[in-house]
């Protein structure tokens, strides 16, 4: 189990820094052009607001030293693996094409979500091939999207 408190602290800190960056960039775009607001007017206020509320949340989480719940380590691993599978699909699409790359993507996602015995693997393989054909018909033929 991974404590959620550390995630919350990390996210609040990142968003507070992002807020400072947005406000700083806003001033670079120009806050006012004469009497009227310029391109940086809105970003300055957004940055200030994001920094303020992120800092408030950071302080709140720091003050609450108790456990704020946990997340299952396997769930986090699952999220990362699915994301990696999608990145793999993006990279492979350039080489072998989207339709062929979608089959290992679907099999990988099926495995990540529990299809690991021989019967489930056979089922997910069949679903993946069938789905690839459907995707070709819908996106390639009906919607005439030029697939990679």
């Amino acid at each position: 189990m991974i404590p959620l408190r550390s995630f919350d602290l990390g996210l609040s800190a990142i968003l507070a820094l992002l807020g400072i960056y947005i406000a700083w960039q806003g001033t670079m775009f120009g806050y006012q052009d004469g009497a009227v607001p310029a391109a940086g007017f809105f970003p300055v206020w957004i940055g200030a607001g994001l920094t303020l509320f992120s800092a408030l949340n950071l302080i709140k989480v720091l003050r609450q030293s108790g456990l704020r719940g946990t997340v299952d380590r396997m769930e986090v691993v699952r999220v990362l693996l699915v994301s990696l599978a999608l990145v793999g699909f993006v990279l492979m699409s350039d080489v072998i094409g989207m339709l062929i790359a979608s089959v290992p993507l679907m099999i990988a996602v099926g495995c990540i979500f529990g299809a690991r015995d021989r019967r489930s693997l056979a089922a997910i393989s069949a679903i993946s091939v069938g789905m690839a054909i459907i995707l070709y018909l819908v996106f390639g033929v009906v919607l005439t999207i030029p697939l990679l």
Binding site: L105, V109, G110, F113, G114, I124, I127
Partner: peptide, 8 residues
């Protein structure tokens, strides 16, 4: 099961 639905 999510293992059959989510890949699609």
């Amino acid at each position: 099961r999510p293992s059959y639905l989510f890949p699609a």
